[in-house]
């Protein structure tokens, strides 16, 4: 097993430009290292990003956006008081990822890069209309998070690119809500999770963003539901929401839960949140 430890971002990107296909970037390792002794390591080449904390570890707050560097952890966001008011769903999601031992190591960028369909961080980032800043030796490319995934663990990231930062626009948000259903209160992978954000503006109708995890091969937006909500439709039962969601999501049975449970619970959660 090979370990590459670039001293700065430029060196990391140059390494990737030379031979990206063979490299696996690793930040906190909370996904990659699970059941590590059971995984084959011969032939693996790890690109260790952990020493790039200076360049990639900052939380930047401006008037228009918040930028999380690629190595910013869940715990750092939880403890950043500025974010509590600006982007409350970040703290909510972060504090329900695993437990303290995972929160201190897991990164938001890692959550995006790993592409788990149940990603809690991605769910709220996407609801906030976050953008992913992809860096490479050839320069930066910015992609909206909700176009980042093309399939199960398939993304638009080229092998020679690294997530450098996550940019979250600051808007006037009248509704911000996140709910995670796991098998227990903490230390649980999501069975189903949802975030809803309503962006208000004085000169345009409210725009809704509804994101859900564990109901598609990747975290997704419920665009049909968003349109219905934007049109002002009032739902009078969870079943009505379910009928609209059926066009947006396709949950499956797996080791953690069932398709029926996921679809039913998603509709009920959304219904009660809107009704409440």
């Amino acid at each position: 097993m090979n370990i590459l430890q670039p001293r700065d971002l430029k060196e990391a990107l140059d390494m990737l430009a030379a031979d990206a296909e063979s490299m696996t970037p690793i930040a906190g390792g909370t996904d990659l290292m699970v059941s590590w002794p059971h995984k084959p390591h011969d032939g693996l080449c790890l690109l260790d990003l952990s020493s790039l904390k200076e360049e990639l570890g900052s939380i930047v707050v401006t008037d228009d956006y918040v930028e999380l560097g690629a190595l910013v952890t869940y715990w750092e966001v939880i403890r950043d008081e500025r974010l509590a008011d600006l982007l409350p769903l970040l703290r909510e999601a972060a504090s329900q990822v695993g437990a303290i031992q995972i929160q201190t190591r897991g990164t938001w960028a890692g959550n995006i890069a790993h592409g788990s369909p149940g990603a809690d961080g991605v769910t709220v980032l996407m609801a906030y209309d976050a953008e992913v800043v992809l860096a490479s030796a050839a320069g930066d490319v910015v992609t909206p998070l909700d176009s980042y995934y093309t399939g199960y663990k398939l993304t638009v990231r080229r092998p020679d690119q690294l997530i450098r930062a996550i940019r979250i626009p600051l808007r006037s948000r009248g509704v911000q809500w996140f709910h995670k259903v796991g098998a227990r209160t903490a230390q649980a992978i999501s069975k189903v999770g949802v975030a809803m954000v309503r962006e208000d503006s004085s000169d345009a109708p409210a725009a809704w963003r509804v994101t859900a995890n564990s109901v598609m091969p990747y975290v997704c937006r419920g665009r049909n539901l968003e349109q219905e909500l934007a049109s002002g439709r009032i739902f009078s039962s969870p079943e009505e929401i379910r009928r609209v969601l059926d066009a947006d999501v396709a949950p499956i049975d797996d080791i953690r839960s069932t398709a029926e449970y996921r679809a039913t619970v998603l509709s009920r959660l959304i219904y009660m949140q809107l009704a409440g």
């Binding site: 690793i26 290292m33 699970v34 260790d48 715990w75 303290i100 031992q101």
Partner: peptide, 13 residues
């Protein structure tokens, strides 16, 4: 100074 699960931390880090 931060709590971590050492089974998930690569020694090289």
């Amino acid at each position: 100074g931060l709590p971590v699960n050492s089974c998930l931390v690569p020694a090289f880090q």
